[in-house]
Amino acid sequence: MTELHLTNVSFSYPDGTKALENLTLSVTSGERVAIVGQNGAGKTTAVKLMNGLLKPTEGSVLVGDWDTKNHTTAQVSRKVGYVFQNPDDQIFHNDVESEVRFGPKNMGFEPERVNELTDWAMKLCGISEFAEENPYNLPYSVRKFVTIASVLAMDSDIIILDEPTAGQDKIGLQVLGNLLQVLEEKQKSVITITHDMEFVTDYFTRIIVMANRQLVADDNAQKVFYNTEVLEKSMLKPPAVAQMAKLLDFSPGILSKQQLIEAILAQHSL
């Protein structure tokens, strides 16, 4: 069980470019959080600070009782697994299984546990059938699942997924949804960056909105997607269902397809 606390965190690159300003947030163990916002809003910078890939120029990042400033990225990444946005930045083995196995093996787990975690992660990510394949022969979307499996197999308490929905089809999105469910049952915290607002409303209640390197909102989906000020500031497009509900003049609050269908059915039975 590991909690994550960011307190007044800012980050600037050595050339002075500011990438993140004064971010404060906490993620309790077992919690599921979505981070949304425009390209360049600071989302990836924020999560790279969480696993120690970047160290704050101001403020502090606490992973459990570790301040990331006092630990190496290698140490922090045992507690916080980060799945890169671009799978090709991460993959370096010639077959899928070796890629997935590398993490747990490197953690020094018992061989039996390494096997178990490798099989479990590949299965959960729907890539068991590609165990022998070279990852680079697989489509981009499947390669993304190879990188997710590689991180899951390390069994860290906190898992960060950077745009796992990019390029995913309906089946891929279902695999992701199921994976979030399983991780929640295992009491893992999952922080997901995504541009897919339907995916967000389907699987997340807590949403962190970022814009211009700052936190704009940290609230539940209903409050975020029906808050005009937040939407304008972050240039977010609410999920399709919210837009349809608005066009149909329903009162605010509808986010899921089921809610919308029920509202329409109720109107028709009048």
Binding site: D169, K170, E198, P239, A240, V241, Q243, M244, L247, L248, K257, L260, I261, I264, L265, H268
Partner: peptide, 30 residues
């Protein structure tokens, strides 16, 4: 394969017995 979101909703409405004169594929058509 994924439908447009509005089409998915329309199909479910049809299944629930609400007749639609055409199948919408854009939000504003619903």
């Amino acid at each position: 394969i994924q439908y447009p979101h509005v089409t998915e909703i329309a199909l479910q409405l049809q299944q629930s017995g609400i007749p639609l004169t055409f199948l919408p594929i854009r939000d504003e058509e619903l």
